[in-house]
């Protein structure tokens, strides 16, 4: 405590100012009445109104959400399976290749992943659209999910599963009734991670999307190339708002759970 000096206070203040000021400015100027984004001309919510009128953006948003929901759900299922195999699967043929394929996409530049998937889709004559983006996103997201889930599985007491088997469960029942409820928080955060990765992705979506399936990041990117626009500010603010509310409430919820759990444990100790 005593080492929390003025130096630390300053570096934290400056550091967090650096992290947050750009976003705060963005949010503030989204309520700017002027078309010139860098000149303040009074408070207005008109850009939000215009955004909601903009069919192209709304279509893109709808595509993005559909892609994100499907791809993150597939990624969560596949990723959880992969994590389970890696942690509990023991030895099987091609295990090294498998774990390599799980970790490689995490460090693979997006341009390469996007390029290679596009070449595959063309090679097998698959028309590009929502379906191909979902395939692409599910593939790289499942690796992230499997990392998140396997870190939880590693710290998970294997004897719980063995107890379930001992009490007459089949392997599937043991997984569904014992393992899954315990690793559920990791699976949920894996899903959330996959969901945001998909919402966020520009590069891979650019390679794998077709003309009728423009996602929001692609739309934003092409708009932004022309410079700052108040509509994009408004859109960014909405996205930042959703993420902030989501993350903050998720962490408050998990903190509350932890506090409750601790209180119950303490009560249990005093009760005996």
């Amino acid at each position: 405590m005593k080492r929390f000096s003025w130096f630390n206070a300053t570096s934290l203040t400056l550091g967090f100012a650096f992290l947050y000021l750009p976003m705060i400015i963005l949010v503030v100027y989204s309520f700017n009445a002027s078309k010139l984004v860098t000149v303040w001309a009074g408070f207005s919510t008109k850009w939000y109104g215009e955004l909601l009128q903009n069919e192209a953006f709304l279509d893109a948003a709808w595509v993005t959400i559909r892609v994100a929901v499907f791809s993150s759900t597939i990624a969560t299922i596949l990723g959880t399976m992969a994590a389970y195999i890696l942690v509990r699967g023991g030895r099987f043929m091609g295990r090294t290749l498998f774990s390599g394929m799980i970790y490689a996409p995490l460090v693979m530049p997006e341009v390469i992943t996007g390029l290679s998937l596009l070449l595959l889709f063309i090679g097998i004559g698959l028309d590009r659209g929502v379906f191909t983006i979902v395939l692409a996103h599910a593939t790289f997201s499942m690796c992230y999910v499997s990392v998140v889930v396997s870190s939880r599985l590693v710290s998970f007491d294997k004897s719980l599963e063995e107890a379930a088997l001992d009490l007459g469960c089949t392997a599937w029942q043991a997984f569904r009734l014992v393992t899954l409820p315990i690793i559920a928080p990791a699976v949920i955060s894996g899903w959330l991670l996959a969901f945001t990765l998909s919402l966020d992705d520009l590069v891979i979506a650019s390679f794998t999307s077709g003309p009728s399936s423009t996602t929001l990041p692609i739309k934003i990117f092409s708009a932004v190339r022309l410079g700052v626009s108040p509509e994009i500010n408004a859109l960014s603010t909405i996205m930042i708002g959703i993420v902030t509310i989501g993350v903050v409430s998720f962490s408050i919820m998990s903190k509350r759970n932890a506090v409750r759990r601790e209180r119950e444990e303490r009560a249990a100790i005093h009760a005996t």
């Binding site: 750009p22 400015i25 990041p217």
Partner: peptide
């Protein structure tokens, strides 16, 4: 910790975009 992680969840594209307005 949460303040450091929060930008992680925010769109990468938007975070880069925010600097265009600052640096132009």
């Amino acid at each position: 910790m949460m303040l450091v992680i929060l930008p992680f969840w925010t769109s990468f594209l938007i975070r880069v975009y925010a600097w265009i307005g600052i640096l132009s």
